[in-house]
Design a protein around this nucleic acid. Structure first.
Length: 321
DNA sequence: AACTCGTCCAACCGCTGGATA
DNA sequence: TTATCCAGCGGTTGGACGAGT
């Protein structure tokens, strides 16, 4: 049952800090053979280390594209904004900061920013309390960092099928969509609603395909699970989720069995996984972290066309060609 | 100088999910 | 379908180091 441990503890494997010699051996080996196959790498390279340890050492310290030095203020602001947006998805956040590792960002957050955010929150509470006093009219609160954004739950998921939607056919009002299959099954009352939604989506997809995927096409927009105001992005969706929802309709299944069914969009991937890195443009982030959430009562701006960085589409579209 | 305490961060650990036989 | 492999992720740990007493 389950997998065997990466390295059994009774093996004569070295732990703890790496020496310069070990670093050199690892670098030399990877320079010649490339990385990957971490489990066998230590043996082949002549290192008495666990493969996992080698991987971590390479990714977090020895990679040539690692950026040394302090986190700049720009990087810091970006980390804060991304953390507001994504939560503790360190690898995703690191993906937006070239040369920075998830470990580094996680450490930086835990040692610097989390404390500062907490202090800031406390300060805001005090400010709010004192501002309730009519003798101290509230001035426009402009905290350095906003912290109460709903976190978008994303997942570094490889889609094996295309998910396209046409701007022109997009629904104008937020639509509740049950993304979890079991929840969908439990909520019979939602079934017809979902069917209608998915039917609409599938219809959109058909329309998109009929137009042969032009530059206005985008991924599905966010949907608002209205009560808890949780926001889910389309990256949470596996294609199977759509299929489950659309089985009764069949429309989307037709779509995904079409000629372009082997398209692969890779979303929100870490920079050191041999995969594309730039997913969200800074404009998008600005919209997400400022424009989208400036109004607490309306977390999602469905009228805004820019949801996912168009570069993602374009680069993938080129690959398709 | 010696000790304590807090901070930083590299490394470890356990778990997850995709791939594959 | 199931078991296993493997890479990757996020939380936690512990040693090094500096500041304060």
């Amino acid at each position: 049952m389950g997998r065997s441990p990466c390295c059994s503890k009774d093996e004569d494997l070295k732990r703890g800090a790496w020496t310069a010699d070990e670093d050199k051996i690892l670098i030399d080996y990877i320079r010649v053979h490339g990385h990957g196959r971490w489990r066998n790498l230590p043996q082949k390279a002549g290192l008495k280390r666990c493969g996992k340890s080698c991987r971590l050492r390479w990714l977090n310290y020895l990679r040539p594209d690692i950026k040394r030095g302090n986190i700049s203020s720009d990087e810091e602001e970006l980390i804060i904004r991304l953390h507001n947006l994504l939560g503790n998805r360190w690898s995703l956040i690191a993906g937006r900061l070239p040369g920075r590792t998830d470990n580094e960002i996680k450490n930086y957050w835990n040692t610097n920013l989390s404390k500062r955010m907490k202090d800031n929150k406390d300060h805001n509470k005090e400010t709010t309390t004192s501002s309730s006093n009519p003798k101290h009219p509230q001035t426009e609160p402009t905290p350095p960092f906003k912290i109460d954004f709903p976190v978008i739950r994303t997942k570094a998921t490889k889609c094996s099928k295309p998910l396209l939607i046409n701007n022109n056919a997009r629904q104008s009002t937020p639509v509740p969509l049950l993304l979890d299959a079991s929840a969908a099954a439990a909520a019979d009352s939602e079934a017809n609603n979902n069917k209608n939604i998915v039917s609409s989506i599938a219809s959109n997809h058909k329309e998109v395909l009929s137009k042969n995927y032009n530059s206005n096409d985008e991924f599905l927009p966010f949907f608002n699970e209205d009560d808890d105001k949780e926001i889910l992005s389309n990256t949470d969706l596996l294609i199977d989720d759509y299929c489950n929802l659309t089985d009764a309709d069949g429309g989307l299944n037709d779509l995904i069995n079409s000629d372009v069914s082997d398209l692969c969009y890779e979303l929100l991937l870490s920079p050191y996984s041999d995969q594309p890195t730039t997913i969200f443009s800074d404009d998008i982030l600005n919209q997400w972290t400022h424009g989208y959430f400036d109004d607490a009562d309306d977390h999602i701006n469905h009228d805004d066309d820019s949801i996912i960085d168009r570069h993602c589409h374009q680069s993938n579209a080129k690959e398709i060609e």
